[in-house]
Design a protein around this nucleic acid. Sequence first.
DNA 1: GTAGTTGCAAATCATTTGCAGTAAT
DNA 2: ATTACTGCAAATGATTTGCAACTAC
Lengths: 143, 143
Amino acid sequence: MSTVKDQFRDYLGKHGLKVTRQREIILDGFLSSPSHLSAEELYLRLRKDNPNIGYATVYRTMKLLADSGIASERHFGDRQTRYEPNTSEEHHYHLICNSCGKIIEFEDSNIEALLMKTAAAHDFTLSHQRLELYGLCPDCQTI
Amino acid sequence: MSTVKDQFRDYLGKHGLKVTRQREIILDGFLSSPSHLSAEELYLRLRKDNPNIGYATVYRTMKLLADSGIASERHFGDRQTRYEPNTSEEHHYHLICNSCGKIIEFEDSNIEALLMKTAAAHDFTLSHQRLELYGLCPDCQTI
DNA sequence: GTAGTTGCAAATCATTTGCAGTAAT
DNA sequence: ATTACTGCAAATGATTTGCAACTAC
């Protein structure tokens, strides 16, 4: 079985890039953190155990993770780029609370089927998709 | 009948803000340009006829247009914020070509109904939604 | 040993803001 | 008159890059 770490090592090898201590630390940190962290947030988390790790290295490595297909870059309302692990092949979507910022992931095969059909109707070869629903979560709705 | 220009004047008046020559020029320019322009692109267009208009004024005015409900801010792959006019109440979605950058808008009441239902299932009060399908447009698909 | 990598600081890019002069109310 | 607005230049915040020292191969 191939773990995500193997997948990354493999990608690095195939591209003449090196497996370094920092890259492994960053990948580990990314995988064991909540989803949708920004590079800066991940950097701050990693700092705790690895005070010597560099800001730029985190940015560079997150780009590598995105290139290797392990992570996806996302932009929600704010200015920062956020990363989420790529879950096998199931697409998922997001509900985002305008008030508390909570991000809820969900999947829906009906939606997925409909989007596929839509892309096909426009002769588009689909690579990826983004669906975000913004509103107020149950907790933030005043009565 | 209320035009978009009236809507903007109205918004300004109600908020103790002033109707200025620059704001009218920027609104006109925005309305007569292709959709999905960034503030910078709009600024460059406006410059041609109004060499004295300021960069910051365009940014500030685009924010006003967004606040007044005339325009919406959007983020596609790149770093810039893009603006599109708000078309009455029909929601629309985007197909974006990874190769040539073309942006195609479409509407789909089936998708819309499904999204409403999904939000309701999570007890979310929906405010707005984003759906983007990325891929290759017919022209960019190599055979 | 060679080529890629790191960490720092400086650079960049989009956007925002302070301020003195100007214009709308 | 008063208060908001403009345009410039300088500031900011996120991200990128140049470079000399370092580390994986």
